[in-house]
């Protein structure tokens, strides 16, 4: 096989999901949040690819899996520009942005060391408010509030 053919073999997806425009530093976190390590279908992960918008981006291709919307939206905090492509029979049948849910459960750790979520075995829960750069996350338990940018660095 020539190298260009090899690239094509990896790139072409008959059925499944392609998640593009993930910031490079967030790629492996996104992989973890989406539970991709546990899949047994073929998965292709690319990182540090050139991107005009992000400078450097990551991409995840998963064969034969279509993720539920609320699962995909769990990466919106760390990859707000992520674009989801649903592929069926080599065609992109749906293309959409991820969007931040009203509450984020079990993704971000609460940065308040006295918060109950850091002492008992419970998933964190944050109430999301604002948009874009003004996103704020308030802990459902201790009310500690952080910006979306801060929260994205706490994993």
């Amino acid at each position: 096989m020539t190298s260009s053919k090899k690239e094509l073999a990896v790139a072409a997806l008959r059925n499944g999901t392609v998640i593009d425009h993930i910031p490079s530093r967030a790629l492996f976190t996104a992989v973890r949040i989406l539970g991709i390590e546990g899949l047994d279908t073929s998965v292709t992960i690319g990182n540090n690819l050139a991107s005009e918008r992000l400078g450097s981006k990551g991409i995840i291709k998963v064969a034969d899996v279509e993720f539920a919307e609320d699962v995909l939206n769990r990466i919106a905090l760390i990859a707000p520009d992520a674009m989801v492509n649903i592929i069926r029979d080599y065609e992109v049948v749906e293309k959409r942005h991820v969007s931040l849910p009203d509450t984020l459960v079990g993704i971000v750790r609460c940065s308040n060391p006295k918060c109950v979520t850091n002492h008992e075995k419970i998933p964190t829960r944050f109430i999301v408010s604002g948009h874009g750069a003004d996103v704020r996350l308030r802990c459902h338990y201790c009310n500690h509030t952080v910006s979306g940018a801060e929260a994205a660095t706490i994993q």
């Binding site: 308040n112 918060c115 002492h119 802990c139 459902h140 338990y141 201790c142």
Partner: peptide, 27 residues
């Protein structure tokens, strides 16, 4: 409780009404 959010969490594990008499610097 000195742990913040303890009373909220307590409401989630029991049906008995909880009255928060102070949870750290929270409420």
């Amino acid at each position: 409780h000195f742990i913040e959010g303890a009373a909220q969490y307590a409401t989630e594990v029991t049906d008995v009404p909880i009255v928060n008499a102070g949870d750290g610097a929270n409420q």
